[in-house]
Design a protein around this nucleic acid. Structure first.
Lengths: 117, 117
DNA sequence: CCACTATATAGACAAATATCAATATAACAA
DNA sequence: TTGTTATATTGATATTTGTCTATATAGTGG
């Protein structure tokens, strides 16, 4: 939880003219949303997610590696970040591991974005 | 541009069974999408964006500061990151500055997310 | 001009991140 | 068992990030 004031500190007055600032998003929810955004906030990870989506899942790590000009451990590191955030999962098939998107996990972000503008 | 292979390196064969990995997202586009995601990838910034949306724009910095338990320069720093990413803009009104969302800027992300799953 | 206020900037520092080379692990195959 | 291969982990290192205090900037009002 980062720098969040208690709820009863919201909506107090000020001398300037704008007060339309209630959040409608708890600090916990903000934390989860931000964590997902951060996870997608690297070009390699954004593209991995897109590959898994486009490929319909079950994409081999060896095929992921081919698309990028970074080392194998770096790809493995990005996959771990995606796994830890609950965005993807991997299944072992013999020597290979096939990755897929966790279904519905990006719904949180869609809802956040659709609530905006 | 981060660790992106040239396009002609895509879709080569492998000994494992999955090859459904064409990207449909250029490296430049991935960079922009990731940059926006990264910008929203902090709980304070995610909540600032939500406040601006909920408030319909023209929200005073002084009202933003009230919601968080971090110092004034830290809020200023986060607003700068949001400005630099083209997510928000501020207009001076006397001593105060009113921030708003840049209209439509999050459309890129909606499109990215709606193309997934 | 001077004091006061809101916001931004500069500088310092700790923590987190991205990357790579080297190594470990685990599954297959001979 | 021994070798080979795909992926993960470890450890080192450079860069980036988030935060603070202190200070600057710019607008308001006497």
């Amino acid at each position: 939880m980062v720098g969040q004031k208690p709820a009863d500190a919201l909506m107090v007055g000020s001398s300037c003219a704008t007060h339309k600032t209630d959040l409608h998003l708890s600090a916990d929810q903000a934390e989860r949303v931000a964590d997902l955004f951060k996870t997608l906030g690297h070009p390699v990870r954004a593209q991995i997610v897109m590959m898994l989506s486009r490929g319909g899942g079950d994409v081999c790590v060896c095929d992921i590696e081919r698309h990028f000009d970074v080392s194998q451990p770096t790809i493995s590191h990005h996959l771990k970040k995606l796994r830890d955030a609950g965005v993807v999962y991997g299944v072992q098939h013999g020597l290979w591991v096939h990755y897929s998107l966790v279904p519905g996990v990006l719904e949180t972000l869609r809802q956040f974005l659709n609530g905006l503008d």
